[in-house]
Amino acid sequence: MTEYKLVVVGAGGVGKSALTIQLIQNHFVDEYDPTIEDSYRKQVVIDGETCLLDILDTAGQEEYSAMRDQYMRTGEGFLCVFAINNTKSFEDIHHYREQIKRVKDSEDVPMVLVGNKCDLPSRTVDTKQAQDLARSYGIPFIETSAKTRQGVDDAFYTLVREIRKHKEKMSKDGKKKKKKSKTKCVIM
């Protein structure tokens, strides 16, 4: 069974824990209790493949930012979460993405942009803004509501699919490099 290491990042209060708990335990946590770091595991079937999701729910508070490099190193894919009623959390996505790329030393890291709290009427981040940002990053965008469960499975499952595509691409690139290195030079 394939294991996928997913990391949920975003500013404090955007609903990272609520999304994760909704996926794992099928219930909505409405009281806000700032996370330092929590880890969850769940076995699911995605596109006919049974897999184990190892999900790291991270601290959004700035005082825990020193811990970010460590979990970013171990993560295979990242859910970059903002709240649709919090423009600052949307603007912060850029910083999370840049930090992930720096730590992973790669421009090509599996990510999904997630606009959470889409059940709320007080939207300050337009869907088109988020779609445009995701398009500019070359990553999928999904709106979710941890409260109603809308888009929750889709967000995590899409990230797994992005990781699969990335692994497939990397193995193809690896095979191309191996083929090239088999060419021999004969000096007579």
Rank of each mutant, 00 (worst) to 15 (best):
E63H: 07
E63N: 06
E63F: 05
E63G: 05
E63V: 04
E63I: 03
E63L: 04
E63K: 08
Y64V: 01
Y64D: 00
Y64G: 00
Y64K: 00
Y64C: 02
Y64N: 02
S65P: 00
S65E: 13
S65H: 08
S65G: 09
A66Y: 01
A66P: 14
A66T: 09
A66S: 11
A66L: 07
A66C: 14
M67W: 01
M67H: 00
M67V: 03
M67Y: 00
M67G: 09
M67I: 12
R68A: 08
R68Q: 08
R68C: 04
R68G: 04
D69H: 04
D69Y: 03
D69R: 02
D69E: 11
D69N: 05
D69L: 01
Q70R: 02
Q70N: 12
Q70A: 09
Q70K: 06
Q70D: 15
Q70V: 03
Q70M: 07
Q70L: 02
Q70Y: 14
Q70S: 08
Q70W: 11
Y71P: 04
Y71T: 02
Y71W: 04
Y71A: 04
Y71F: 06
Y71G: 02
Y71M: 01
M72I: 06
M72Q: 04
M72G: 03
M72A: 04
M72E: 02
M72S: 04
R73Y: 08
R73Q: 12
R73G: 06
T74G: 13
T74Q: 11
T74F: 08
T74L: 09
T74H: 07
T74C: 11
T74P: 04
T74M: 13
G75F: 06
G75N: 07
G75P: 03
E76F: 09
E76I: 14
E76V: 14
E76S: 07
E76T: 14
E76M: 12
E76R: 05
G77D: 00
G77C: 13
G77V: 14
G77S: 03
G77Q: 00
F78R: 00
F78Y: 06
F78I: 03
F78W: 02
F78E: 00
L79N: 00
L79S: 00
L79Y: 02
C80G: 05
C80Y: 10
C80F: 15
C80K: 02
C80W: 04
C80S: 04
V81T: 09
V81I: 10
V81D: 01
V81C: 12
V81H: 05
F82K: 01
F82C: 15
F82N: 05
F82V: 14
F82G: 15
F82T: 15
F82D: 02
A83H: 09
A83G: 15
A83R: 06
A83P: 15
A83V: 03
A83W: 03
A83M: 05
A83S: 14
A83E: 15
A83I: 02
I84P: 15
I84N: 15
I84M: 15
I84V: 15
I84R: 13
I84S: 15
I84A: 15
I84T: 15
N86Q: 08
N86R: 05
N86P: 03
N86V: 03
N86W: 02
N86S: 12
N86A: 06
N86D: 15
T87A: 15
K88I: 07
K88T: 14
K88R: 10
K88P: 12
K88D: 13
S89Q: 09
S89L: 04
F90D: 03
F90T: 05
F90Q: 14
F90C: 10
F90V: 14
F90I: 14
E91P: 04
E91R: 09
E91T: 07
E91G: 07
E91K: 06
D92L: 07
I93D: 02
I93K: 00
I93S: 04
H94I: 13
H94E: 15
H94R: 13
H94V: 08
H94W: 14
H95V: 08
H95S: 11
H95R: 14
Y96L: 15
Y96V: 11
Y96G: 02
R97K: 10
R97D: 04
R97F: 15
R97A: 15
R97G: 08
R97L: 15
R97C: 15
R97V: 15
R97N: 06
E98C: 04
E98A: 05
E98K: 06
E98V: 02
E98N: 08
E98D: 08
E98T: 06
Q99S: 06
Q99P: 02
Q99A: 09
Q99F: 07
I100E: 00
I100V: 06
I100Q: 02
I100D: 00
I100L: 11
I100K: 00
I100R: 01
I100N: 03
K101M: 15
K101F: 08
K101D: 05
R102K: 13
R102S: 09
R102I: 07
R102F: 07
V103L: 10
V103E: 07
V103R: 05
V103M: 08
V103G: 04
V103I: 13
K104W: 14
K104M: 08
K104F: 09
K104Y: 06
D105I: 08
D105G: 15
D105A: 10
D105Q: 10
D105E: 12
D105T: 08
D105C: 12
D105K: 11
D105M: 09
D105F: 06
D105S: 08
S106W: 12
S106R: 12
S106T: 14
S106D: 12
S106K: 10
S106L: 13
S106M: 14
S106Q: 14
E107Y: 10
E107T: 10
E107L: 12
E107H: 11
D108R: 07
D108S: 10
D108T: 08
D108I: 06
D108C: 09
D108H: 13
D108Q: 14
V109W: 06
V109T: 08
V109S: 04
V109H: 03
V109F: 12
P110G: 02
P110C: 04
P110I: 03
P110D: 02
P110S: 04
P110Q: 03
P110F: 03
P110R: 03
M111D: 00
M111A: 02
M111T: 04
M111L: 09
M111K: 03
M111W: 04
M111I: 12
M111S: 01
V112I: 10
V112K: 00
V112S: 01
V112F: 05
V112Y: 03
V112W: 02
V112C: 04
L113K: 00
L113I: 13
L113P: 00
L113Y: 08
L113E: 00
V114T: 02
V114I: 13
V114G: 01
V114H: 00
V114L: 11
G115V: 12
G115A: 14
G115F: 11
G115W: 10
G115K: 04
N116Q: 15
N116M: 15
N116C: 15
N116D: 08
N116G: 10
N116R: 00
K117I: 15
K117T: 13
K117S: 14
K117Y: 15
K117W: 15
K117P: 01
K117H: 14
K117M: 15
C118R: 07
C118T: 12
C118M: 11
C118N: 10
D119P: 04
D119K: 05
D119R: 04
D119G: 07
D119F: 04
L120K: 11
L120T: 11
L120P: 09
L120Q: 10
L120F: 14
L120R: 07
L120G: 14
P121Q: 11
P121Y: 10
P121N: 14
P121E: 13
P121D: 14
P121S: 13
P121H: 13
P121W: 07
P121M: 11
S122Q: 09
S122R: 09
S122N: 13
S122F: 10
S122T: 11
S122E: 13
S122D: 14
R123E: 15
R123N: 14
R123T: 14
R123V: 13
R123D: 15
R123F: 11
R123G: 15
R123I: 12
R123A: 14
T124W: 09
T124M: 11
T124G: 12
T124L: 10
T124C: 12
T124Y: 11
V125E: 14
V125F: 11
V125M: 13
V125Q: 13
V125Y: 13
V125I: 12
D126Q: 09
D126F: 08
D126K: 08
D126H: 09
D126R: 06
D126L: 08
D126P: 07
